[in-house]
Computed example of a mutant assay.
Amino acid sequence: MQKILVFTDIHIVAQGQTIIGLDPYARFTQGLSHALARHPDAARIVLCGDLTHRAKPEEYARLRGALADCPLPVSLMLGNHDRRAPFLDTFPEAARMETGHIQHHADIGAHRLICLDTLDETAPDLHSGYLCPARLDWLEQRLTGAGTGPVIVFTHHPPIDTGFAGMDAIGLRNRAEFIARLRAAGNVVQIVSGHVHRTVQGSAGGIPTAILKSPCHQMPMALDAEDTSLSIDEPGAYGLLLLTDTGVVVHTEDFTLPPTRSATYS
């Protein structure tokens, strides 16, 4: 069994700044320490986009500092709050895509992880996602290269409606085309996304889809709200994927809850 740690919607801000009174940097470093202490045997960490809040160089520099001593390989992805140019100024090693997008794959045992770039810097609504033909073709090549082995696909923007009206309005705009490529490949066993700041389970064309919470601020349970900036101070979390011979198990860990004492029922 292999383990993958997943953080999404980190929203690092500049030194001294907060979001609804919470320090995203402190929350992320707390969560990272928590995850590494409990799962030092994890194979990789995936950061599913919205690495920063305003895509400022200082914010990316703070993230780089937070990851400096991380003993595990890290996959960096972009979300709607990110921008490619300042990201690449700080993480030039991520510039591996001939199309100019931040996409890559990693093979972990029998499983292939594919991390996609759904950022649309020219989105008419500023925050929705899109996978252009070049990105979809790249995805198809990596799916084909995995053969019949199980594939986990990571996106920032979820490919499903969640019931949150405002967030669904700024989701992945061409999700139907994306799902069609996955279904045609026939080897995708799990999709993992962020963006919504809520733990949600669903299905994209029959493929299990897990949406994970932020380590910082969460979306309140207000399904009809059109305002996508609504935020609430609920426990911060990260995801833990267990890659087994029989499937993918998705856990979520609320790491900011008070410590609890174990007991045995009799």
Results as ranks from 00 to 15, higher is better:
residue 83 R to I: 04
residue 146 A to F: 06
residue 21 G to V: 05
residue 208 P to Y: 00
residue 145 G to P: 03
residue 3 K to M: 00
residue 68 A to M: 08
residue 231 S to L: 14
residue 50 D to R: 05
residue 23 D to F: 04
residue 178 F to R: 01
residue 174 N to L: 10
residue 171 G to I: 07
residue 94 A to L: 02
residue 229 S to P: 00
residue 204 A to M: 08
residue 188 V to A: 02
residue 144 T to F: 02
residue 225 A to F: 03
residue 40 P to W: 01
residue 38 R to K: 13
residue 173 R to G: 00
residue 75 S to F: 01
residue 210 A to C: 11
residue 55 A to K: 00
residue 213 K to H: 11
residue 68 A to R: 14
residue 171 G to V: 09
residue 102 I to A: 08
residue 53 H to R: 12
residue 105 H to N: 06
residue 53 H to G: 00
residue 154 F to K: 02
residue 237 A to L: 07
residue 49 G to H: 09
residue 20 I to A: 08
residue 151 V to T: 13
residue 202 G to H: 10
residue 49 G to A: 10
residue 93 E to A: 15
residue 96 R to V: 15
residue 237 A to S: 15
residue 60 Y to M: 10
residue 264 T to K: 06
residue 127 H to P: 00
residue 264 T to W: 07
residue 96 R to Q: 15
residue 239 G to K: 06
residue 101 H to G: 02
residue 189 V to K: 12
residue 217 H to M: 12
residue 157 H to A: 05
residue 214 S to T: 13
residue 188 V to L: 12
residue 87 F to R: 02
residue 86 P to R: 02
residue 182 L to E: 02
residue 116 L to E: 02
residue 210 A to F: 08
residue 48 C to A: 14
residue 81 H to Y: 09
residue 25 Y to E: 12
residue 240 L to Y: 11
residue 119 L to M: 12
residue 151 V to H: 03
residue 54 R to C: 08
residue 168 D to E: 11
residue 216 C to Q: 02
residue 213 K to E: 14
residue 17 Q to K: 14
residue 81 H to R: 13
residue 214 S to F: 04
residue 91 F to Q: 07
residue 187 N to D: 09
residue 189 V to P: 01
residue 134 A to H: 11
residue 55 A to M: 03
residue 204 A to H: 08
residue 42 A to M: 06
residue 68 A to G: 05
residue 204 A to E: 05
residue 228 T to P: 01
residue 257 L to K: 13
residue 105 H to E: 14
residue 163 G to M: 03
residue 142 R to L: 04
residue 227 D to G: 06
residue 154 F to H: 04
residue 227 D to F: 03
residue 99 T to I: 06
residue 53 H to D: 15
residue 57 P to L: 13
residue 196 V to I: 15
residue 28 F to L: 13
residue 150 P to K: 07
residue 157 H to E: 11
residue 104 H to T: 10
residue 205 G to W: 09
residue 241 L to P: 05
residue 72 L to E: 07
residue 67 L to P: 04
residue 59 E to I: 09
residue 193 S to P: 04
residue 12 I to D: 01
residue 94 A to P: 01
residue 59 E to L: 09
residue 168 D to F: 06
residue 208 P to F: 02
residue 251 H to D: 14
residue 218 Q to S: 09
residue 133 P to E: 05
residue 155 T to M: 12
residue 102 I to Q: 07
residue 59 E to P: 10
residue 266 S to Q: 12
residue 161 D to A: 14
residue 83 R to Y: 01
residue 106 A to H: 11
residue 118 T to Y: 05
residue 15 Q to E: 15
residue 181 R to P: 04
residue 10 I to M: 12
residue 158 P to Q: 10
residue 107 D to M: 03
residue 108 I to L: 13
residue 232 I to V: 15
residue 114 I to T: 04
residue 258 P to V: 03
